[in-house]
Design a protein around this nucleic acid. Structure first.
Lengths: 212, 212
DNA sequence: AATAAAAAGAGTAGAACTACTTATTTTAAT
DNA sequence: ATTAAAATAAGTAGTTCTACTCTTTTTATT
């Protein structure tokens, strides 16, 4: 009985590459190939894959939102995150959110099949690079509270507008709040995402796929 | 006589996807497969490809710097940019810098072979999506000076430090300049990259691969 | 019904950023 | 040798952001 694998990534080339890589594996069957989350969710009930290879950065939805959504509906599915984001913080958050594996697109791809088999059997799989990243981060930041709190809808909305280069007064006018309130949200975002200033906020928001 | 093609991209999956796609094309020969610019430059003299498929965002070098570098040494090589950046401004700058083709990773990949043949014969190839992007941007921004001036070393240095979340006073202290001078550079960067504020500056710097 | 979290708002104060203009010195290019 | 560009510095003025503390109202959750 072969393992059913689906992939979601907005780059056709990456999907093609995966296809080519897994074509030789007799015990792995590629049952789904999606470029966006709607497509995938519509097809999921019938396809029922065992393992999902998930890209984090996609135009419509971010993998961050997708993981809780998918695991809530299909608790038995195993998600392997396949992305180029190499932040220890983000990796930890994703594993916490329910991901069973993490592979870097920039790394060696020979272990994809191995990763699929491992998580298919209920284990966690991290590539060597990822393991190193995590251990290094543990060594360097002793007190690492880590896991970022979820952002509320309002916070996400304001983050998005900040990302679109609006100033606090502009945002206040746009969404009918007082400037002080917007500033408060802004400061809260700096704290929650552990950023020093707006620059750090934007960088993290991009990395975490919180903005479009 | 077949067209010799090389590809540089830091994602093995993308390289694999290209390989798979071009395997069926009898008149196209993949002669090089590089994950970073040093590797490529070392191999170029002997490999002598006709066409280079170039990813813009790579960890060590950015495609922006690479294009002038390559065309200066190998003027006959045709560069096709293959990336997910869909900014009209950036596309225009790259064509101006000497790129002969532009394809979006998020777009339909059926035309890669066609693009290679077209630029191989000295023509310019833009995918449909890219053409639409460019015409739309022409329609919307009437006075679009566009082409970004190159940044000086000092400007790049300060941009990098801004990206690393230093404030102007901190930068001034770090590189022994007056705060006012750093502020002047900062304002100049906003103008040159046509950004409204630091947020826009960071976004463009990332997109254009000006920071690490 | 009680507790917690989210949403909205505000005071004070200072730091940092943006805008526009001008000027000097050094370095590179025709 | 002349011109142009880059690097450096600064004035004035106004706007925006950051920091810390606090309050009220609404919405969920147990």
């Amino acid at each position: 009985m072969s393992i059913k694998v689906a992939i979601i990534d907005d780059h056709p080339l990456v999907r093609g590459g995966i296809n080519a890589l897994l074509g030789y594996e007799a015990d792995i069957e590629l049952t789904g190939n999606y470029s966006n989350s709607n497509q995938m969710l519509a097809d999921f009930r019938s396809a029922q894959p065992d393992v999902l290879l998930l890209d984090l950065q996609m135009p419509d939805t971010s993998g961050f939102e997708l993981i809780p959504l998918i695991t809530a509906t299909y608790p038995s599915i195993k998600i392997i995150v396949l992305t180029s984001i190499d932040s220890a913080l983000i990796i930890r958050n994703l594993l916490h959110a329910g991901a069973k594996g993490y592979l870097l697109k920039t790394g060696n791809q020979e272990h994809i099949a191995e990763a699929i088999r491992e998580v298919g059997q209920g284990r966690i799989f991290l590539s060597e690079e990822v393991k190193n990243l995590l251990t290094n981060s543990l060594l360097h930041h002793k007190t690492n509270l880590g896991f970022h709190k979820d952002l509320s809808d309002r916070e996400l909305q304001i983050l998005q507008l900040l990302f679109e280069e609006y100033t606090s007064p502009e945002i206040a006018e746009k969404i009918h709040l007082s400037v002080r309130t917007v500033e408060n949200y802004r400061l809260g975002l700096l704290q929650k995402l552990d950023a020093k200033n707006i620059t750090g906020l934007i960088k993290k928001a991009i990395m975490m796929g919180l903005v479009k």
